[in-house]
């Protein structure tokens, strides 16, 4: 397996390290999106915590200087992805880099350059328009943490039907978001 990783253009001279204040600023500005990205790639919450930390520590050791928020975000995603790959390899887990590349493509398409807040705001707006069973299914599954089987019982459906309903609802939300963005 080979990993194709382009050298980010924002690397600076080899001896330069990130000052503590810069690191603090970088962490505050980007940690939420790095964490979300890792969760999106399949890391558990605990792993996402650890890997977010390792991502920023790696950047602290690197010769990094910020040129634009967009480049920084992309660079951090690359580092985070590598941290996840390394963690998976240490656990002898296989992970498809092709899938990761597809994931990155989707992320960079839907998540704006300034971060995921625009996506989330659009999702909030779209959620408000949901009604009926779709809304009930989303609330039950995500907010009340009910299983598909429990929801199926409540909604007088089959578990596969709930799964389909949830998936279709997410698709509706995606279409709504894409229209808004």
């Amino acid at each position: 397996m080979s990993i194709v990783m382009s050298q980010p253009s924002i690397m600076q001279s080899p001896m330069m390290k990130l000052a503590p204040a810069q690191l603090a600023e970088l962490v505050r500005e980007h940690q939420a999106d790095v964490w979300r990205y890792l969760r999106y790639l399949g890391a558990t919450t605990a792993d996402a915590d650890d890997l977010t930390q390792e991502t920023f520590l790696a950047v602290a050791r690197a010769q990094f200087s910020e040129q634009s928020p967009q480049q920084t975000a992309a660079y951090l995603r690359t580092v985070a992805r590598n941290q996840l790959l390394m963690a998976r390899r240490r656990e002898n887990h296989q992970i498809s880099t092709v899938a990761l590349a597809a994931a990155e493509q989707v992320w960079s398409t839907l998540v704006s350059e300034t971060g995921s807040s625009v996506l989330l705001a659009a999702l909030v707006d779209c959620l408000e328009k949901l009604e009926g069973r779709a809304r009930a299914a989303i609330d039950g599954f995500y907010r009340d943490r009910r299983s598909r089987e429990e929801l199926a019982y409540d909604m007088n459906m089959k578990p596969d039907g709930v799964k389909t309903l949830l998936r279709r609802t997410r698709e509706v939300l995606r279409n709504c978001i894409e229209k808004r963005m």
Binding site: R36, Y40, Q105, W107, S116, L119, L120, Y142
Partner: peptide, 15 residues
């Protein structure tokens, strides 16, 4: 991955 991204968004906003 689109589905996963929306799934994560819902987990954050609703969950």
């Amino acid at each position: 991955w689109h589905d996963t991204l929306i799934d994560r968004g819902l987990a954050e906003l609703v969950g």
